[in-house]
Amino acid sequence: MSHLNSSKPLIEFRNIVKSYKNILVLNNVSFSLNQGDIFGYIGPNGAGKSTTIKIMVGLIRDFSGTLLINGKNIKSSYLELFKNLGYHPQEAGFHRWKTVYQALRTFGKLSKLENRFLDSRIVEVLEFVNLKEVMNRKIIHLSGGMLQKLRLAQALLGEPEILVLDEPLTGLDPASRYQIKNLIKKLANSGKTILFSSHILSDVQDIATKIGILNLGNLVKIGSPSELQSEYHIGNRIQIEFDNDIDILDQLQNLNYIEQSENKSANVIVVSLKVEADLDESIHDLLQYLIENKYKLRRFNLLTPSLEDVYLKLVQGENNEF
């Protein structure tokens, strides 16, 4: 997109508010994305993720606030902006009587892609999503994973610079999830700006360079995965597995760098270190203490705080637990 203004954010949500019949779905949502960002939009079901996405792709036009894409207000530039947007809907269906090729050809024509390049472009996107071998198969005969790839293929057809993917990994078997995840990573590496929603936190953590956490229509936090983890530092935790059943919690509580310890099973405990405790020093001291007291260790693992911890803290207000 040669006309992109690199000094300004590519996408800007400014105080977006959306209600359905007096139910507030989005409450003053504001965030911005730069070119090349991979924005993971997470939140529980009904948080407003799909609504945000539908506003962005023009399926919902009745909202208040301002949405700028490359500095242009989406409300007045829908037709122009459509060209640079690829949308992978959560559950879009296709005309099931069509073949994969026929469906993509219709979308290509509707997107006003040049007829002479359309066939080669269809083959190109089908090769990218590994669907070329089924291009003449009827859509009714495609598996769930193939349908998800077809949704991605139609989003890529017009070579958009911005990709909006609504729950692209939901409902897929592990092999398909792995494939789609790799495709998203490949797209990200090619410089596309990607906004994708998910409620599978590990997926977001794997792919996103920026994360927004939405809860009950409010964007409660936005930042890079590492920023969120360090800002919401929950304290490192260590899981210790002993050779035999053990009762050690009271003794551990006396160590000044330990915040809390709990039994996960008769021979496994999880120790939460204090936030201010030095990690290396604490591990060293703890190991020394256990060895000096002749405890027989089977396993000693450091549990790094994950996005899930941050998410739970923000969305559910609950203490994390493994």
Binding site: V57, L59, F82, L85, Y87, A92, G93, H95, L110, Q154
Partner: peptide, 16 residues
């Protein structure tokens, strides 16, 4: 049927 299966979503994000 097409409305329920979100068939139109992919048309409406295009200049249609």
């Amino acid at each position: 049927n097409e409305k329920n299966n979100h068939v139109y979503d992919l048309f409406l994000i295009r200049p249609v």
